[in-house]
């Protein structure tokens, strides 16, 4: 187990290193931030000074080396725009995004598994077919359009839900959370559902496919032959088997949900990391972009590790293979 963990950590460091090169070179090539940051009326002298202060006069490899050295000390640079450490800026925005992403994932799981299992148990019924048709829409409708429609229906016509911002937040262990107040929950509903829609469709499909496969297995027939009630067969025998692929996919999806909450955050003006990265790209705020991408990569690595560990909890065969290896 420990060996496995150390090996995974070494892989993680390698991935982070390679990503940092790609990100650094990529950001370097998309444009010169000085053109945007400096007052157009500034004279040559001022521009040269600004370039020197920002460290942009040094060659790329030297900039990268400085970045690596500082990164090793936990410093990912200062924002050009706000002049505070980039990592601090991102961490300020992180709770909002995390809260949104986690709520969306829970929504997807809590709605998706029952719906998917129902569709799998009754594939020929009207309800089963409607669920599947709905999931196709969930996959194919663009997120931003669904977001706009939600706003139009629930905020403009019906006036039930607010359309922008986080609403009232409450401090919990030093983190501001919307979910702790009723106003915050109302603000959260639409963006969370919007973000959850894709995951919901995915979970429905996985749960349905898994259920349809599982109910044909001999162990289900044997469970019925034991005289078990169908509630227990579906709730325990089928459920535990279909959770294995769902956990794998959802873990990976949680990463991309956080990383790509950008669209939803923009539509609902949700003050999260996604909104920050869009603003930073517009302003070519390089340290923030780099720091954001590095944090996302790190998060993917951690989530993958957690998924692997959870997998071994769900599937006893994995646990044994690991202990031997």
């Amino acid at each position: 187990m420990l060996v496995y963990f150390i090996r995974r950590m070494m892989q993680a460091v390698l991935v982070l290193f390679i990503m940092s090169i790609l990100v650094f070179v990529g950001v370097f090539s998309i444009g010169n931030p000085v053109d945007i940051l400096i007052n157009p009326q500034a004279d040559q002298e001022e521009i040269a000074r600004a370039i020197r202060v920002l460290g942009l006069d040094k060659p790329l490899w030297e900039q990268y080396w400085l970045f690596l050295v500082n990164a090793a000390r936990g410093d990912l640079g200062r924002s050009f725009v706000f002049n505070i450490p980039a990592i601090e800026l991102i961490l300020q925005r992180m709770p909002a995004t995390m809260e949104l992403a986690i709520c969306a994932t829970f929504m997807g799981v809590l709605m998706g598994i029952p719906l998917g299992m129902w569709a799998g148990l009754k594939p020929d019924s009207v309800s089963g077919k409607s669920i599947m048709a709905g999931s196709i829409l969930g996959f194919s409708l663009p997120t931003f359009w669904v977001g706009l429609m939600l706003i139009m229906i629930f905020a403009v016509y019906l006036g039930w839900l607010p359309s922008t911002g986080r609403g009232q937040t409450r401090n919990f262990l030093g983190i501001e959370l919307s979910i702790l107040t009723w106003d915050g929950i109302k603000h959260m509903m639409m963006p969370a559902f919007n973000l959850a829609l894709f995951k919901l469709s995915l979970v429905i499909r996985l749960a349905r496919a898994g259920t349809r496969e599982a109910i044909l297995q001999d162990y289900v027939k044997f469970a019925r032959a034991k005289g078990l009630r169908s509630g227990r067969i579906i709730g325990v025998h089928v459920f535990k088997n279909i959770m294995i692929p769902i956990v794998t996919v959802l873990g990976l999806e949680l990463g991309s949900t956080i990383a790509f909450a950008v669209v939803t955050e923009t539509v609902f003006a949700w003050p999260g990391m996604g909104k920050l990265i869009i603003d930073s790209i517009n302003l070519l705020d390089r340290p923030v972009i780099v720091a954001y991408l590095m944090i996302i990569v790190f998060m993917f690595i951690v989530i993958n590790l957690v998924v692997d560990l959870m997998y071994s909890v769900l599937d006893p065969r994995v646990r044994i293979a690991e202990a031997r290896g």
């Binding site: 034991k226 325990v236 025998h237 535990k240 769900l314 599937d315």
Partner: peptide
């Protein structure tokens, strides 16, 4: 009656036990 008065044993023992549940779970529930 199933499992109490009439029981059944299947052909392929590799498939009849649920792979993700312990033997005690599967027998106690029966």
């Amino acid at each position: 009656l199933r499992g109490s008065r009439i029981a059944m044993i299947f052909q392929d023992p590799m498939m009849t036990l649920n792979p993700v549940l312990r033997i005690d779970t599967q027998m106690i529930e029966a």
